[in-house]
Nucleic acid binder design. Structure first.
Length: 466
RNA sequence: GCCCCGUUCGUCCAGCGGCCUAGGACGCCGGCCUUUCACGCCGGUAACACGGGUUCGAAUCCCGUACGGGGUACCA
C-alpha cells in the first residue's frame, strides 16, 4: 500500500471522550502500520464552539496517550477562504442555491404538499438572492444513488431521493461540516477516512460534494463500530462518564488504556491481548475490524491496567504513583514496598489505601468487622498482644524475617499452652493498620519502627479493655 | 415514519466453507498456595438471534423475520 494519510478530526465540543480516543487510536494505528501520516484537524466550523480551552481538551489527552500526530492541528475556523471558494464554485455551477426558508416554512410546505417531513428543494427555482440569514443548499440529484465501498462494511448505497438538499453554508456565512470535510480531505490529501459509524450516513453527502467539486477519486472510508454503554446506546458525554480526563485522574496508565481501546472492535489473530503497542501496530489491520458495536467494560480495563502496573519496576512505579500520594509519604518506603502495592491495585489512585497506615502517627479508626473478628472473637487476642510487646521491645526492627518468626512463635506457644490454635498475625495487623487486610506486615514494620508499633499495640489493648 | 448499519459465551475478542464435539481474555464458581488481603497456578461455567435456501459440507455465502443501534439540524 502507498503510504496513507489519515486524520483525526474532532469538533471542539468540550472534553475528549473514550469513543473519540478510540477513533484517534485506530487512525494512528493504521498510519503507523503502513508508514503513513496522521493529521490532526479541529473541526470548529461553528464559531460558537471555538475556544482555546476546548482545543486544549483535545490536544492534552492525545499527548498523554502518546498518539503523536505528524501534521496539525489545523483549524477549520482559519480556513474559511477555502470553503468560500468551494461554495461559490458550486453556486456558479448550478449545484447549489440560496434559500431563505425557515425550518417552520419547510415543514408547512411539506404538510401542504402532502409530502414526508423534510426539505423538498423548495427554493431550487425561487432565485433567492444572497443576503444576511440566507443559507446555501446543495442540489442533490433527483435520480440515482451514491454508493461507498466501506473498508469495514462493504458497499453502502443510498438513494438520492432519500437525501434532502442539505445546507452547506449557514445564514451567518460559516460552512457546514459536510462541505468543510470534503474541501479539507481533498486539500490535505487524505487517503483514508476512519471514523465512527455514527457518521456513516453523512458520507454519501460528502461524496456528492466531492464529485460536484471535481475532486476526482475520493478517499477510502472505514466506519468503526460504535462504543456503547450498558444500555447499548452510543456513548454520550451527557449520560456516561467517559471523559479521558477522568481516566487520567483515576490513575490509569496511558499504555493500558490504549491497549484496552485497541481491543474494542479488533483483536490480534494470536489472541494475545495484553502486549506492547509496537506489536499491536505490526498486527493491526483495518479490514478485520468488527462491525458490531462494543461495550467498553471498566472491569476489563481495570484488569489490563493492573497488568501494566504490575509490570512496572519499583522505580517506575514510584514515579507513576507519586502524583496520587500525599506529600508526607516517604517515597523510599513506597519504593521498598512497591511490589506488594502493585499487585493489589488496579488504578494508581488506590495506592494510598494500602499505604496510609505507614505514614500516620496513630490509628484513628479501626475497621469494626476486622476488629471484632481478630480482637473480640480472636482467641486470646489480648494475651497475644501482651506477649508480642515482650518480644518486640527488645527487637532491633531491622530484620523482617525475625519479626515474622517472633510473631508466629508467640502464636504457636500460646496454641500449645491453650490447646487450640491461636493466631498472632491477625490481632497484630489490626492493631498496626486498623484493617484486617493489607500488604504483608514484616517488612513494612521495619519502616513503621519500634516506637509506633508498640504504641499502637498499647492503644489496641486499651481499646480492647475499654 | 423514512434511510442506513449491525447480531458468536454476561462482556470483549478469535473464527473469514471442512482444522469447530466453536478457541482466548475479563467476570463468576470451585480448588491449590497462604497464620491477612492479594498475586500466581489448576479446573469449571457459558454463545454461533430465528427461519428458509445454496453446498457433499455453513458460525462462516444468499434471502427473509425478529431484535438492537445510528441517522434523519443553519451539531459534527
Amino acid at each position: 500500500m502507498q503510504a496513507p494519510r489519515v486524520r483525526f478530526a474532532p469538533a471542539p465540543t468540550g472534553y475528549l471522550h473514550v469513543g473519540s480516543a478510540r477513533s484517534a487510536l485506530f487512525n494512528w494505528l493504521f498510519a503507523r502500520r503502513h508508514g503513513g501520516q496522521f493529521v490532526l484537524r479541529v473541526e470548529d466550523t461553528d464559531e460558537s464552539k471555538k475556544s482555546q480551552e476546548f482545543v486544549d481538551a483535545i490536544v492534552e489527552p492525545l499527548r498523554w496517550l502518546g498518539l503523536d500526530w505528524d501534521e496539525g492541528p489545523y483549524f477549520q475556523s482559519q480556513r474559511k477562504h477555502l470553503y468560500d471558494v468551494a461554495i461559490q464554485q458550486l453556486i456558479d455551477g448550478g449545484r447549489a442555491y440560496f434559500c431563505d426558508l425557515s425550518a417552520a416554512d419547510s415543514q408547512r410546505l411539506s404538510a401542504e404538499a402532502g409530502l414526508r417531513e423534510g426539505y423538498h428543494g423548495w427554493s431550487r427555482d425561487r432565485n433567492v438572492a444572497d443576503g444576511d440569514g440566507v443559507v446555501v443548499r446543495f442540489r442533490v440529484p433527483d435520480k440515482g444513488s451514491t454508493a461507498i465501498e466501506d473498508l469495514i462494511r462493504g458497499r453502502v448505497e443510498v438513494a438520492h431521493d432519500t437525501i434532502d438538499d442539505f445546507v452547506i453554508r449557514r445564514g451567518d456565512g460559516s460552512p457546514v461540516f459536510f462541505l468543510a470535510n470534503a474541501v479539507d480531505d481533498h486539500d490535505m490529501g487524505i487517503s483514508h477516512v476512519i471514523r465512527g459509524e455514527d457518521l456513516l450516513n453523512t458520507t454519501p453527502k460528502v461524496k456528492l460534494l466531492w464529485e460536484a467539486l471535481g475532486y476526482g477519486t475520493p478517499p477510502r472510508y472505514a466506519h468503526l463500530p460504535l462504543l456503547v454503554n450498558e444500555q447499548r446506546k452510543k456513548l454520550s458525554k451527557r449520560r456516561d462518564s467517559v471523559a479521558l480526563s477522568e481516566f487520567m485522574a483515576d490513575g490509569y496508565l496511558p499504555e493500558a488504556l490504549l491497549n484496552a481501546l485497541a481491543l474494542l472492535g479488533w483483536g490480534p489473530p494470536d489472541e494475545v491481548e495484553i502486549r506492547p503497542m509496537a506489536e499491536i501496530v505490526s498486527l493491526f489491520s483495518l479490514e478485520v475490524v468488527n462491525k458490531g458495536s462494543a461495550y467498553f467494560d471498566l472491569v476489563k480495563l481495570k484488569h489490563i491496567n493492573n497488568a501494566y502496573i504490575k509490570a512496572l519496576t519499583p522505580t517506575e512505579f514510584v514515579e507513576a504513583v507519586a502524583p496520587w500520594l500525599p506529600a508526607h509519604y516517604d517515597l523510599g518506603v513506597v519504593e521498598a514496598l512497591a511490589g506488594e502495592v502493585q499487585q493489589r491495585i488496579s488504578t494508581l489512585s488506590e495506592a494510598p489505601g494500602w499505604l496510609d497506615w505507614l505514614f500516620v502517627d496513630e490509628i484513628s479508626e479501626y475497621d469494626e468487622k476486622a476488629w471484632t473478628k481478630a480482637m473480640v472473637k480472636g482467641r486470646a487476642a489480648d494475651r497475644v498482644l501482651a506477649e508480642l510487646v515482650g518480644v518486640l521491645e527488645t527487637d532491633p526492627f531491622n530484620d523482617s524475617g525475625r519479626l515474622e518468626a517472633s510473631t508466629f512463635e508467640v502464636g504457636n506457644r500460646l496454641s500449645e499452652e491453650l490447646g487450640a490454635r491461636v493466631m498472632s498475625q491477625a490481632p497484630l495487623r489490626v492493631a498496626l493498620t486498623g484493617s484486617g487486610a493489607g500488604i504483608p506486615l514484616w517488612e513494612a514494620m521495619t519502616y513503621l519502627g519500634k516506637e509506633r508499633t508498640l504504641s499502637r499495640i498499647a492503644a489496641a489493648r486499651s481499646r480492647l479493655a475499654g
